[in-house]
Design a protein around this nucleic acid. Structure first.
Lengths: 339, 339
DNA sequence: TCGATCTCTGAAAAGGTTTACAAGAGTGTA
DNA sequence: TACACTCTTGTAAACCTTTTCAGAGATCGA
């Protein structure tokens, strides 16, 4: 029912090849002719049939985004950025949920592979060698993960967490706890690395707890252990975990930030919504999605295989809200906790 | 590079037609033959080329999901359910963000229409006649919206909010406020309808505030006006708004639930994460996504056009947490508020 | 035994686009 | 004039699958 390239060709008085060229390789056809074609196409409301095009070019015009957990707010912003950039380039975006499971993730890559030109793989839980061994098609771009030979976009986790440590040090904290994220997570390792270097630099003590799943409930469960460490400040793997800590502390009657300072990571919207609003390291999440798609699009160009796979590092900033303050000289609720 | 149907046919010693039939209409080919084909296909790792299939069938094997705002946690659960069901049926899911804008939403439907067999349109902001006038292709299924002639899946908003009102009435509240959502939102009208009927039934007073955008910040802004009404309980359009109210109340030093009870709607994960945890009407969100895709898949069957468009209503439940309690006889923080 | 019916299979067309190749026109050079 | 270009366009093949149509063989009833 919709107009085909033949209809346009007939209307413009040219061959179908000329119509095709007018649309996909404008420079190869005389300007005059092209104008005629464009008018005819517009009049008929012609849009190339993507299936037919895909059949011959081998391209789908789609890209995929795979996240470990679509329920994690972090990815919504990524998705939003990715989708916006993709739409600009006339690509459509598939999404899928890896369910925090390496096997599922690999299956998803294969299943999705047939239908997309490339995939943005967010915070992959896959082992490095699995990742390296995957087929060259579809093209992969890694987000928050570095693997030799694969293009990737990462957020400066180490630098960001260092900002947080310095902030705490300036407030007078000398003993900090870290609630660690998944062992498979590259981001977690980066944060830990930054943390170790930076606490040493400012002369603070560091106690790590975990690893825990990057979720609210894990944070709530970890709060008690944080208190046991005697730390006056706690940094969490991400905001979700930090909010979990916050929630449990409220339950226990531990006042934040007076008795314990709490810092998150990511700056998801939730961070500003809780009480008290969370001090956190802000990652440019939407931008990251955008940049990842940008990198993917670039990778899809002819001859991209020759160029080396680039790694782009995005800067982070510290957002100071109300969950951090100078440590109290004494903790008033010790009795309450042991009750 | 990947195996084509011809390779499979050659290996199995049959024609391509037989291979095709073995895979798409198993009953039309002798069991013996089919087994041979299946073995050959498995050995070669054959997977039908979707573009070629789409070219001839006119189907894409994709479905789309459009939400007014991908940043709203409500849709993540919808998306999760939709994606899971779609994957079971070997469909892939496109997502797009309507940006709370009717024009953008319509453009999206058109753009996406070429690449999908059907669309699940969540909480559409489109005017009823626009919605009715849209092309029959792609097939549309509405979520949380009812329009004559269109299949839809709705959550029992009116019934759910009635549960909440009864809960408040039992606690002794006689004056309730409602922070209303977008005027274009069908869900909002339903909630308001249920609210009016139910408050009348239990003999409570109702004051409405708004409409406001369905976001955290709107809730925060509305909190002051809620206090002015003198209501002892407030129901919000959704959890995001409720959490905004909560946040502002904490800032003002108004204790929840002692001085004011707060009720949300949707039961997004956030509802359990805030302090105090939010009493809310739980919508079966993930299920809704699932059911909507189910309805879409059904609608995609041959001859579905004859059948009338069904409306499915999903039940809601009340989740009582800690943000509701019996009203205090006096409000102790009046002075604080006016300060 | 003959014809009718049914079951299974193959040949070939069709679907809409891109692109290799060829051809024609025009331009500049020897 | 002949030649070698470039520029522009058209013809036709190719992409891979589904599906129509027809044919071959088998079964069944008369």
């Amino acid at each position: 029912m919709p107009a085909s390239i033949h209809a346009v060709a007939a209307r413009a008085g040219v061959s179908v090849a000329t119509v095709s060229r007018s649309l996909t390789a404008p420079r190869t056809v005389r300007e005059n002719t092209r104008a005629r074609v464009l008018v005819a196409a517009a009049e008929l409301g012609y849009e190339p049939n993507r299936a037919a095009r895909g059949l011959i070019t081998g391209r789908t015009g789609n890209i995929g985004v795979i996240a470990p957990d679509l329920g994690n707010p972090y990815f919504h912003a990524v998705l939003k950025g990715a989708q916006a950039r993709a739409r600009e380039a006339d690509y459509a975006v598939f999404v899928a949920d890896g369910q925090e499971d390496a096997g599922e993730e690999e299956a998803l890559i294969r299943a999705m592979g047939k239908q997309v030109d490339g995939i943005v793989l967010c915070s992959s839980r896959l082992a490095p060698d699995t990742l390296a061994r995957l087929d060259p098609t579809p093209t992969l771009v890694l987000l928050n993960r570095r693997v030799p030979g694969r293009p990737s976009v990462v957020v400066d986790s180490a630098g960001g967490i260092c900002l947080a440590v310095r902030h705490l040090a300036e407030l007078g904290h000398v003993r900090c706890a870290f609630v660690a994220g998944p062992r498979r997570s590259w981001s977690n390792r980066e944060r830990l690395r930054g943390l170790r270097a930076c606490t040493r630099a400012v002369g603070a003590e560091l106690v790590t707890i975990g690893p825990v799943a990057p979720q609210f409930t894990s944070g709530a469960a970890a709060a008690d252990r944080v208190l046991e460490t005697g730390a006056t400040a706690v940094l969490a793997y991400n905001d979700l975990v930090a909010v979990g800590v916050l929630s449990r502390l409220a339950e226990l009657g531990v006042r934040v930030p007076d008795e314990l300072s709490v810092v998150g990571f990511d700056d998801i919207p939730l961070a500003a919504m809780v009480t008290p609003p969370l001090t956190t390291v802000a990652a440019p999440t939407e931008l990251a999605g955008r940049v990842a798609v940008e990198a993917l699009l670039d990778r899809l160009q002819d001859g991209a295989a020759q160029r080396p796979a680039a790694v782009q590092r995005l800067p982070t900033t510290l957002v100071v809200r109300s969950s951090t303050a100078a440590p109290a000289l004494t903790r008033t609720t010790t009795a309450l906790r042991s009750a």
